[in-house]
Amino acid sequence: MMAYMNPGPHYSVNALALSGPSVDLMHQAVPYPSAPRKQRRERTTFTRSQLEELEALFAKTQYPDVYAREEVALKINLPESRVQVWFKNRRAKCRQQRQQQKQQQQPPGGQAKARPAKRKAGTSPRPSTDVCPDPLGISDSYSPPLPGPSGSPTTAVATVSIWSPASESPLPEAQRAGLVASGPSLTSAPYAMTYAPASAFCSSPSAYGSPSSYFSGLDPYLSPMVPQLGGPALSPLSGPSVGPSLAQSPTSLSGQSYGAYSPVDSLEFKDPTGTWKFTYNPMDPLDYKDQSAWKFQIL
C-alpha cells in the first residue's frame, strides 16, 4: 500500500520538471525561470610600474599592434585584453584634452560664430520673369535699313540677281523696263511654242516681248482663266512685280493683265486636223540634229 502513496517519478516537459499528477507549474501565473544575472567585471587597478610601461608604449604609438600589447601584458602581468581596453580609454582621454585646449585658446566670443544676415524675399530687387527677354536684342539694338529709291541700282540687283547668272552684270533701268511683257505680243502666236536658250531668258530683255519668248507657250493655258476669275487675268510678269519692288498687295496686282481676252486664246483648236509644230532653235543647249523629232501629229 505504501508504494502507491509515494509520488511517481519526475517528468520533464519543455525542460520543466513536473512532479506526478501536479500540474501547477503549467499555470499561467507561474513564470518561467529567468537567466542568472551576469556579474559585473571588477575594475582593474594599475600600479605605478604598470602605468609607466603603458605610458611609455603610448608615447611611441597610440595604436599598438597585438604583438606589442602581448609583450607589455607579459611585463606588467596583466591579460592582453586589459591592455587593449586601457589604450582605448587613453585615446579617448587624449582627444578630450585636445578639445579642452582648443576651447581655452579661443576667445569668449569666438564660440558663437556670427551668422550672415538672411536676406528677406521682398527687399532684394530681383529681375521680373513675367516678360520673356528678347534673345536677339531686336527691340533695343536692331534698326531696319532704310528703303532705297525705287530706281536705285541696288534694288535692281536684289531683284534680278536671283534669276540671272553670276557672270552677267546687273540690268540697267532701261533693260528692266523691257522685262514687262506686252499683251499683244504674248497673244499673237498662241499655238507656236519656241524653246529659246537659257541665257536669253536671263539677259535678253527682248525675249519677253517677242513671239518667240519663253513664256509665249504658256499663254494658251493662262488666258482661259479670265472668265472664271470674273475680271482681268493676273500676270506674273506684269508691271512692277518684276520691277523695283516685289512687295505689292494682291489688290494692286488684280488690275494688271496680259491684255484683252480673245477667243483665239482658248485651248480649242480651230482646225482639228492641224498639227502643233515646235520651232527648233539652233541655240538650244539640247543638241538634236534631227528636226523631225520636234513634229508630232495630233490624233
Rank of each mutant, 00 (worst) to 15 (best):
G8R: 06
G8C: 12
H10M: 10
A15D: 00
L16W: 09
S19P: 05
G20E: 01
P21L: 12
L25R: 05
H27C: 12
H27M: 14
Q28N: 03
Q28R: 13
V30E: 07
P31T: 06
P33C: 10
R41M: 11
F46D: 14
T47F: 11
S49P: 08
S49T: 04
L54Y: 14
A59M: 09
K60P: 14
T61Q: 04
Q62Y: 06
Y63R: 13
E71R: 10
E71G: 12
V72I: 09
I76C: 04
P79R: 07
P79Q: 02
P79N: 06
E80V: 06
E80S: 08
V85T: 13
V85E: 12
F87Q: 12
K88P: 15
R91W: 14
Q99H: 09
Q99Y: 10
Q100K: 07
P108N: 05
P108F: 03
P108Y: 03
G110Y: 03
A114D: 04
K118Y: 02
R119L: 02
K120A: 01
K120R: 03
S124T: 09
P127R: 08
T129P: 04
D130E: 02
V131A: 04
D134K: 10
P135K: 09
G137D: 09
G137P: 02
D140Y: 03
S141G: 06
S143L: 01
S143T: 03
P153S: 05
P153R: 15
T155M: 10
V160N: 01
S161K: 11
S161T: 15
S164Y: 12
A166D: 02
A174V: 11
R176K: 08
A177W: 12
G178A: 05
A181N: 02
S182K: 10
S182T: 05
G183L: 14
T187W: 13
S188A: 08
P190V: 14
A192G: 01
T194V: 15
T194D: 00
A196Y: 14
A198P: 01
S199H: 09
C202H: 08
P211Q: 03
S212M: 11
Y214Q: 02
S216A: 07
L218W: 09
Y221W: 06
L222A: 00
V226K: 05
P227S: 07
L237V: 05
S238N: 03
P240R: 12
V242E: 01
P244S: 04
A247D: 05
A247Y: 11
S249H: 07
T251S: 07
S254D: 01
G259V: 15
Y261K: 09
S262N: 02
P263H: 10
D265T: 15
D265P: 12
L267Y: 07
G274K: 05
P282F: 14
P282Y: 09
D284Y: 10
S292E: 00
W294Y: 00
K295A: 05
F296L: 06
Q297E: 08
I298N: 00
L299A: 00
